[in-house]
Design a protein around this nucleic acid. Structure first.
Length: 857
RNA sequence: GGCGGCGUGGCGAAAUUGGCAGACGCGAGAGACUUAGGAUCUCUUGGCCACAAACCGUGGGGGUUCGAGUCCCUCCGCCGCCACCA
């Protein structure tokens, strides 16, 4: 009788799965497909338990689906470009490629030792030319369609990483990777026009019913749609300054503002411009603009982060100019304010101090006039007495022809009026900006364009792809593109005119790589196209996608964008790449997220050595729902190990009794009460585990249901003396003799269902036990057990009886007892009668045959 | 400030649509078997109480309902995202 020795059996089955190519798949129209994907890994070195939790979750789903007859695509790969590899090169002199490929080899070994059922023949690494070739291909397609473009722009610059960052990579004004405060730089940059899809991305988010609300909210916030209007204010001619009357004559200049509250425009008493506004720049350069220029420079020099987060004092100064409010026709002063952002809207704001708190404070500080133009029901605000702005709803007052209208109605009518008078129009403003993808680093995809003296920017023709990333040996960490230092790379000929040309030396943001890798997995070896549309047509979209919430915005929104780009290229008809998204919780140790720098990582290999991969998997799945964060405890892992040893002993001891041929199904036999109870538990457990796994993905409760079944089996065996338990470890359980055929039959059914259902969680042990039970051919082929609803249902149920909401009695009745009978039984029950003594029954409710509720007085 | 999520024993957690709160596990306690037990098996384990009954109990308060952890209002606390966004 062999003890449970995970180390030996796990190796045995991992070898067998590999040798039999157990998880490799091809398209099979006869079977329903299931694409199960976990976010691929950045090969940082070693995977810790926090990383592998995600792969375990996906593996349970993939293995369960396989047993349920699906053709399951479950691939894995490596997000292999990126800065850490380059930083390691600068630090240790190891080439990024060496560093990356070594890490991949190690981590792949880790995942294999955990027994994740990947189709490894589809493995991809984004740093290899046969992958990034297609980044370049898509780039060219986007260039053709105007979805990729180049412009000089003020970009986010991380002085520590020496590279540009996308807006999405700036967190609270600091670099997402290293935390250094981000500065601004003006550079020639490549962009992807994601804003073209802003509206669609936002609207389609309502259709993502398989996504967590939290992620959708984050994406909606990020896209940041706000409806409003642009309104143009004329600029008054100069010269009236100082006379106390700002001029009525207008120049050809206009100031366009963005507002969500055009209904308050009659109270727009001044204009605020961002210090970076072009008019401010120009006026500062004109005669007499010295002071303006000084203040503008001072505001621009203020710490950007502080300006963005509003920690800095609100300040402004008068430009001395005036603009004409196009609704009132009256001149209003134009100020520059340090809190107006050039990035948002038009970089100019119409200030309505009566109805916007910021404007109110500004007006108070500088003695500017306040006007009330919206009054709420039954209120009468006055500009003289109000202590704060009134930002809310109400009816318009002092607003010319619009006076008396409800504010929302006024908003619509005034937007129309602006349009008619050609002084503005309704518009939608997004927070989302185009995606800057240029990076001044080495370890990434070269951008496939050249610059020719004669022809200008020329794309590299598709048939010359890939533009290979040259191997370089020196990593200085200096702040310019490393590729620019390699003349053999830079100097090339123009594909158009054959004249001398220079290659683009920036590389692509690595988020480009991860924006479409899920399609490449469908056809990873294709050398003609990024993927065969037919293959993606079969496998796509991803049915189940799991990963960390840290990708809720960046990766997921970019992937949704790319999916639409491929759709509009005619490569797929999928709009949304991920049908179901599970955001897995983190693994904490000592109250903190596992990380190398905190020194609290748990290496799965250490745990596997001690308890085996199966126990580790079971523990991580059992301790909490997948979405929730978990606190690592060794004791919990040991508990799972104990449970597996308990299962092992049970099956091992019963194998001889129930493993033979010719055992009939319990359905064909006469069962006694105990046998019926076990059979009911078996079928009920199958029902619970099945629905817990699919579609609910409540992995933890599925495990507890299995534990209950095991407890029940032990109790049953103890009663029927199938097993003698309670001895020394090496004689813990010994098989007794079982006479009744029916007992053998129900035991066999229960144990085989147990082993099959536990196999997604603990595949190695399950395979071994399945073999021990006399079944060759592997447990996946055995399929998922099915249950009989009628058997799962108890034939007697306990019905609680409530009196005024408190349970006073329990009736044991046959299942299916009618409501009238239940009512009669309840009222006749002696316990109930006791509580009813001297009271009047007002009402009796029988709820779904499951509960009786009596109301008395 | 806006939006979203959450709050249940000593701990991790359960409780499909409102229907017996605390399944399952960890920890703790007791017993059995033992030279021994950190193995195994059995039992106990929300509070109050010697026990039972009764009563109390899902962050606080209120409401809807025969019945609320679950729905509504309100307050408190925690977490997340966005944010001088015009």
């Amino acid at each position: 009788m062999p003890d449970y020795k995970p180390q030996t059996i796990e190796k045995k089955w991992q070898d067998r799965w590999r040798d039999s190519r157990a998880f490799e798949v091809t398209e099979d129209p006869a079977k329903p497909k299931f694409y199960c994907l976990e976010m691929f890994a950045y090969p940082s070195g070693h995977a810790h338990v926090g990383h592998v939790r995600n792969y375990m979750i996906g593996d349970v789903v993939a293995r369960m689906k396989r047993m349920r007859g699906y053709n399951v695509l479950h691939p894995f790969g490596w997000d292999a470009f990126g800065l850490p590899a380059e930083n390691a090169a600068i630090k240790n002199g190891t080439h990024p490629e060496t560093w990356t490929l070594e890490n991949i080899a190690h981590m792949k070994g880790q995942l294999q030792r955990i027994g994740i059922s990947y189709a490894w023949e589809r493995e991809i690494a984004t740093c290899l030319p046969d992958y990034y070739h297609w980044n370049q291909w898509v780039f060219l397609k986007m260039l053709e369609r105007g979805l990729a473009y180049r412009r000089r722009s003020n970009v986010n610059w991380c002085p520590s990483c020496n590279t540009v960052l996308a807006n999405e990579q700036v967190i609270d004004g600091a670099c997402w990777r290293c935390g250094t405060t981000v500065t601004k730089r003006e550079l020639e940059q490549w962009f992807f026009r994601i804003t073209q899809y802003a509206d669609e991305l936002l609207e389609a988010s309502d259709s993502l019913t398989g996504w967590p609300e939290k992620v959708l909210t984050m994406q909606r916030n990020w896209i940041g749609r706000s409806e409003g209007a642009r309104v143009r204010f004329g600029v008054a001619r100069e010269g009236a300054q100082g006379s106390g009357l700002r001029g009525q004559e207008t120049t050809s200049d206009t100031i366009e503002v963005f507002t969500t509250r055009i209904d308050t425009i009659y109270g727009a008493n001044f204009i605020l411009l961002a210090p970076e506004h072009p008019l401010v720049e120009r006026w500062g350069g004109e005669a007499g603009g010295d002071e303006l220029r000084r203040n503008m420079q001072r505001f621009k020099g203020q710490d950007r982060t502080a300006r963005m987060t509003g920690e800095i004092e609100k300040e402004g100064f008068d430009t001395g100019r005036a603009a004409i409010n196009p609704f009132t026709g009256k001149p209003v002063p134009v100020w520059v304010a340090n809190f107006v952002l050039i990035e948002y809207g038009t970089g100019a704001v119409m200030a309505v101090p009566g109805h916007d708190q910021r404007d109110f404070e500004f007006a108070k500080k500088y003695g500017l006039p306040i006007t009330v133009v919206v009054q709420s029901e039954g209120e009468s605000l006055s500009a003289e007495t109000m202590t704060e702005a009134h930002p809310g709803a109400g009816q318009l007052v002092d607003s010319g022809e619009f006076t008396g209208l409800d504010w929302e109605e006024a908003n619509r009518r005034m937007t129309d009026a602006a349009k008619e008078r050609d002084i503005g129009e309704g518009t939608v403003q997004y927070r989302l900006k185009d995606w800057g993808i240029s990076r001044q680093r080495y370890w990434g995809t070269p951008i496939p364009v050249v610059y020719c003296e004669k022809c200008g920017m020329v794309p590299v023709p598709s048939d010359s792809l890939p533009v290979l990333l040259p191997r370089i040996s020196e990593f200085s960490g200096r702040g310019d593109s490393p590729l620019a230092q390699i003349p053999e790379f830079v100097n090339t000929t123009c594909p158009k005119c054959d004249g001398p040309a220079r290659r683009e030396t920036d590389t692509m943001d690595t988020f480009v790589d991860s924006s479409w890798y899920f399609f490449r997995f469908c056809d990873p070896k294709n050398s003609e196209l990024p993927f065969d549309p037919e293959k993606v047509g079969y496998w796509g979209p991803v049915d189940f996608y799991s990963g960390g919430v840290e990708h809720a915005i960046l990766h997921l929104i970019y992937s949704r964008f790319f999916c639409r780009v491929f759709r509009d290229l005619g490569m797929t008809n999928i709009s949304e790449p991920f049908t179901r998204l599970l955001k897995q919780g983190m693994v904490l140790n000592a109250g903190q997220v596992m990380s190398k720098s905190k020194g609290n990582v748990v290496d799965p290999d250490d745990m596997i050595q001690k308890y085996g991969a199966d126990a580790l998997r079971l523990y991580v799945m059992f301790v909490a729902p997948p979405e929730k964060e978990i606190e690592w405890t060794d004791a919990g892992l040991e508990g799972s190990w104990r449970f597996l040893a308990r299962v092992w002993r049970l099956v091992d001891q019963l194998a001889e009794t129930i493993g033979g041929e010719g055992i009939p199904s319990p359905a064909e036999l006469e069962l006694n009460e105990g046998e019926r109870a076990l059979r009911r538990k078996t079928h009920d457990t199958i029902r619970r585990v099945t629905t817990d796994l699919d579609p609910r993905v409540h992995l933890n409760t599925a495990v507890s249901a299995l534990m209950e079944l095991v407890n029940e089996l032990y109790a049953f065996c103890g009663r029927t003396e199938c097993l003698r338990v309670g001895q020394h470890a090496d004689e813990v359980a010994t098989a007794g003799s079982v006479e009744r055929a029916a007992t053998v039959a129900v035991l066999k059914e229960a144990v085989e269902a147990l082993v099959r259902m536990i196999s997604p969680f603990t595949p190695h042990m399950a395979e071994e036990l399945w073999e021990m039970l006399g079944h060759p051919g592997g447990i996946v082929a055995a399929g998922w057990p099915s249950f009989d609803e009628a058997v799962a249902k108890a034939d007697e149920i306990v019905v609680p009886v409530q009196i005024n909401g408190k349970v006073r009695a329990r009736l044991t009745v046959p299942a299916g007892t009618s409501e009238e009978q239940l009512r009669a039984f309840a009222l006749a029950d002696p316990q109930v009668a006791k509580h009813l003594e001297g009271k009047t029954v007002r009402k009796v409710v029988v709820a779904g045959g499951r509960l009786v509720s009596i109301v008395v007085e």
